[in-house]
């Protein structure tokens, strides 16, 4: 009985979480939601009698992929900031040249 309830909660939560990952506008929030999706997914694998896959999902899907996403996000933001600074400098130079 308890297990059926547990399965029910999983069945409801997983698609909702999936939709939330897609619907949020902030990428960082999406990554965090994705990691939690992975953890719940590994619980689902356990319920499907596949403990090996659950272990792998938890470690790789939630752990490694989450770390990869965050690292990529950070490098992306750094390069965007860098570009914005370059653009700003270029604009300043252009304005200076026009004034001269």
């Amino acid at each position: 009985m308890i297990l059926i309830l547990f399965d029910f909660v999983l069945i409801i939560t997983l698609p909702l979480l999936g939709w939330a990952v897609l619907a949020t506008e902030d990428i960082f929030k999406a990554v965090v939601l994705f990691v939690s999706f992975g953890l719940l997914m590994s619980l689902a694998w356990v319920r499907l009698n596949a403990p090996d896959v659950a272990l792998a999902e938890a470690a790789i899907g939630a752990g490694v992929t989450g770390a990869l996403f965050l690292s990529a996000l950070n490098k992306l933001e750094r390069s965007v900031k860098h570009e914005r600074r370059i653009n700003r400098d270029e604009e300043k130079e252009a304005i200076n040249e026009r004034e001269i």
Binding site: D52, A59, I60, G63
Partner: peptide, 24 residues
């Protein structure tokens, strides 16, 4: 985990994933 894959849940991929997590 890698050794226990022979008789319960585990195996090369699981142990390797854990090692990867340790490396990260």
């Amino acid at each position: 985990l890698t050794w226990a894959g022979g008789f319960q849940a585990g195996g090369a991929f699981q142990g390797g994933a854990l090692l990867g997590g340790a490396g990260i």
